[in-house]
Simulated assay, not measured.
Amino acid sequence: MDIDALHERGRQRIETLVAELAIDGEVAETAAAIFTRTYTEETQQGRSVDAVAAAAIHVACKIERVPVTAATIAEVAEIEESHLLRRSKWVQSAIDQPIDAFDPAPFIDEYCDALKLSDDTRTLAHNVVTVGIDQGIASGKSPAGFAAAAVYYAAMLQDEQCTQDDVHEVSGVSKITIRNRYQEQAEVVGDVT
């Protein structure tokens, strides 16, 4: 199959996945540009169109700051998450653009909206994340999990009705992860109200 046909197939796959993920059209445009740039005659050997298309979406979500986890993309694309992450790393190095991989902010906003939490709680959750990053406890952690814990912690500090179960339901982050990240945040952040 010639490269133009493969590019078209990749763009179609990106459009399908973006529609299934119900995410912004800008992500599709960015992902298509990334796909075309990285999937060439020289690089296509041993790399499936579907995996590179999914990886392009994952990288595009980071660039566009759209909060979609690798696990969610992998599930919709029907590929192993570890395979998606390997391809994403390859795509990211191929486009040679530094991307702030750890950005919990969009997840905080998404979770606060879904839980109908106050602006004060949202601001406090952002502050918890900022302090946690500054104190070095965020290294190696999932942005979605770190954000979920910060939202739970902030809601507790603000006396808003919000349980770990509630946060788990809207975020998909396990209750164990929420509890562990929350405890780490509470140790270094304290009462930031």
Rank of each mutant, 00 (worst) to 15 (best):
G145R: 07
S174P: 09
Q44S: 13
S82R: 13
E26I: 11
L84K: 06
E8H: 14
W90C: 14
R87F: 03
A101T: 12
L115T: 09
R122Y: 08
E15D: 13
T130Q: 09
I57C: 00
H7N: 10
Q135L: 11
D113V: 14
E41M: 04
D119A: 06
E75H: 05
L115G: 07
Y153N: 04
T130P: 07
E15Q: 13
A150H: 00
R11G: 15
L117R: 03
Q92N: 03
I133C: 07
S82E: 14
D103G: 12
T40K: 15
P67F: 01
E81K: 13
Q161L: 15
V49F: 09
H126G: 06
R11D: 14
Y111I: 06
V192N: 10
C61Q: 03
L21V: 05
H83V: 15
E41N: 02
D109S: 15
I108Q: 06
Q92R: 03
A101E: 12
A60D: 01
S118A: 11
Q92C: 01
C112N: 09
A114G: 09
K141I: 12
S174V: 10
E29F: 03
A22S: 15
F102P: 01
N180G: 05
Q97K: 13
S48P: 06
G46P: 01
A114Y: 08
A56K: 05
Q45Y: 09
H83C: 14
L157W: 12
H126E: 12
V91E: 01
A31L: 08
F146H: 06
Q92W: 03
A70V: 05
A71L: 09
L21A: 07
Q183A: 04
E184V: 05
T72C: 11
V49W: 10
Q135C: 12
E160W: 08
K175T: 07
K141M: 13
G25N: 05
T121K: 08
S171K: 01
A114K: 08
G46Y: 05
M156Y: 05
L117S: 00
V18Q: 07
V68W: 03
V189C: 01
E110P: 02
S82K: 14
C61L: 02
A55R: 05
D24H: 04
C112G: 12
R122Q: 11
A77L: 10
I73Q: 13
K89P: 05
T36S: 04
A5E: 15
P106E: 01
T43M: 07
A105W: 15
A51Y: 01
A114P: 06
K175N: 09
